[in-house]
């Protein structure tokens, strides 16, 4: 009986904590939106973050994109060979990359690379009172630290995604045509026929949304962390987990709305 009561107590507490956290994320989101539209727009800071989130993630995104495209071509080939429809591999790779894997994998890689770094950096700044220092010098940390990161996330993710789409299709081509011997013309023709502009654009809209999610949650976890060096580590982990889950869950809903 006592155990039961304790269990209920724990359950209630965790529900309460979750609700509380959702509320505070919402408040955080609103204040970020408010500060985003208050001038001045700090272009230098945005460029700096775009370099960090975008340019420096380029290599890892190209790598994952290429290999994903190659694997899809290989897997698709074994399936389509049964129906002698090998040239469909091209459009399968292209549609898979542009609609789904391009945005999602890019977002997950950037979360791991940049989202975690945002949480760690802001957490460290909080521990060493740098965030207090910003307040004291009348520079709002949300405006100064978070808005540039969120804007950079929204702007760079679509750019990274289009690169991932492209190298993924290239990777699929190089596995499909020279290695597996699919007819090059049929391969390319299938892509241009079955892939529409909306497939690409919707993938990019998704990517922008994911960029917003990962930068917002990374910043949120870092900005609201407590408890010294250990807290920084915890905030980083939580930021990656929360962003990754949110990206995958919101992907479902975005797909349901768009396609």
């Amino acid at each position: 009986m006592r155990n039961l009561i304790v269990a209920f107590d724990d359950l209630g507490r965790s529900v309460l904590r979750t609700v509380e956290e959702m509320g505070s994320i919402l408040i955080f989101f609103v204040s970020v939106m408010v500060w985003m539209f208050r001038p001045p727009l700090r272009l230098r800071l945005i460029f700096k973050q775009m370099e960090f989130v975008g340019v420096k993630s380029l290599f890892v995104v190209v790598l994952t994109g290429t290999f994903t495209g190659m694997v899809m071509a290989l897997q698709g080939y074994y399936g389509f060979r049964m129906f002698s429809a090998e040239s469909m591999v091209g459009s399968t790779v292209a549609l898979g990359m542009t609609r789904e894997l391009g945005p999602v994998l890019t977002a997950l890689m950037v979360t791991a690379r940049a989202g975690s770094a945002m949480a760690a950096e802001l957490g460290t700044m909080k521990v060493t009172e740098q965030i207090d220092a910003l307040y004291v010098m009348s520079a709002n940390p949300i405006k100064y630290l978070i808005v540039p990161r969120v804007i950079a996330g929204v702007l760079t993710l679509p750019a990274l995604t289009i690169v991932a789409d492209f190298v993924g299709i290239l990777g699929g081509y190089f596995v499909g045509v020279p290695v597996l011997g699919i007819n090059a013309g049929a391969f390319v023709n299938n892509i241009t026929m079955l892939v529409g502009l909306d497939d690409i654009y919707n993938g990019l809209v998704k990517a922008a949304f994911f960029g917003f999610i990962l930068s917002l949650f990374g910043c949120y976890k870092g900005f609201t962390m407590t408890g010294g060096a250990e807290g920084v580590g915890k905030a980083t982990t939580e930021a990656v987990v929360l962003s990754s889950i949110s990206i995958l869950v919101s992907d479902y809903f975005l797909t349901a709305i768009m396609f």
């Binding site: 460029f47 775009m50 370099e51 975008g54 340019v55 380029l58 702007l155 760079t156 679509p158 750019a159 990274l160 289009i162 690169v163």
Partner: peptide
């Protein structure tokens, strides 16, 4: 950043 966006 400019080069990156241009490529994209």
């Amino acid at each position: 950043v400019g080069l990156f966006i241009l490529i994209a």
